[in-house]
């Protein structure tokens, strides 16, 4: 009994300390933003490895999700004789929810874990320490460009996901299932509002981008510099990112799409 309480207390204290470290870390990372924006090459190199290399994964996933939405949506809507509204269903689901959320989860798995592993490994091989001794701030030099790249890539990837998904829904709905092409697009356009839906979707993906990338780089930087430590940190980064994304999704959805 006493052991359990002790453990609980220790875990709580460790978590609080970790949160504190994570926040101080974020401030440190952000302080290097201006310098990195001036050294564009570092940023573009990271946008390549974090963003460009995720395109294939996001596009293919988006396509399949859109197509499945088309199929499933058609099934549900035909019970109500409302097949014409397939376009609305597919687009709304994607733009408001699936685009930002699924992209964030995939991003955490692919790019997030890669970032954690890379940074953890740099820590384990003393590269970060070496930079310190060379009078280069490793956080500003290595972490900040990766963080910015992640935050900037997320909305782009989420939009890509939604676009490809809508096209997938179109192929399935109009191409395969015979929904009227005109109805597909016009219903969609009259029901999806740029501000409420598109912009909110972008805001969501920005928030997710910050959260996922922050967790990924922090876990890498905080990892125990052994092979086991790095591997655990990588797993933690993906798991915590998933929780954080879904949690924030709830909060943001309630704020944005709740009844006004």
């Amino acid at each position: 009994m006493r052991k359990t309480l002790e453990n609980l207390g220790r875990v709580t204290l460790d978590t609080v300390k970790k949160l504190g470290r994570a926040n101080l870390f974020l401030l440190h990372v952000l302080s290097g933003t201006l310098a990195i924006l001036l050294r564009f090459r570092l940023l573009t190199a990271q946008m390549y490895s974090v963003g460009v290399l995720s395109i294939l994964l996001i596009a293919v996933s988006g396509l399949f999700v859109g197509m499945v939405l088309g199929l499933q949506g058609f099934n549900v809507l035909s019970d109500f004789g409302a097949e014409e509204s397939l376009g609305v269903m597919v687009a709304a689901s994607l733009v408001r929810e699936l685009g930002p959320v699924v992209t964030a989860l995939l991003f955490a798995g692919r790019a997030g874990s890669a970032l954690t592993a890379e940074i953890g490994l740099m820590k384990a091989t003393e590269q970060l320490s070496g930079m310190e001794m060379m009078a280069v701030d490793p956080v500003k030099r290595v972490i900040t460009p990766r963080f910015l790249a992640g935050v900037l890539s997320m909305p782009l990837l989420a939009s890509l996901f939604s676009m490809v998904g809508v096209m997938g829904g179109f192929f399935v709905g109009v191409g395969l299932l015979g929904v009227d092409e005109g109805a597909f697009w016009t219903q969609m356009r009259s029901h999806l509002d740029f501000e409420d839906d598109i912009i909110n979707g972008v805001i969501k993906s920005l928030v997710f981008g910050v959260v996922v990338t922050w967790i990924a780089v922090f876990e890498g930087h905080d990892a125990i510099p052994t092979s086991e430590g790095v591997s655990r940190a990588t797993t933690r980064s993906v798991v915590y990112s998933a929780f954080a994304v879904l949690g924030w999704d709830f909060v943001l959805t309630a704020l944005m799409f709740g009844e006004d």
Partner: peptide, 19 residues
Amino acid sequence: LYELRKRMGMLFQSGALLT
């Protein structure tokens, strides 16, 4: 401190080259 370190060189055990 960073200014001072520019005048100090350090060779780590593993070299610590940027991979």
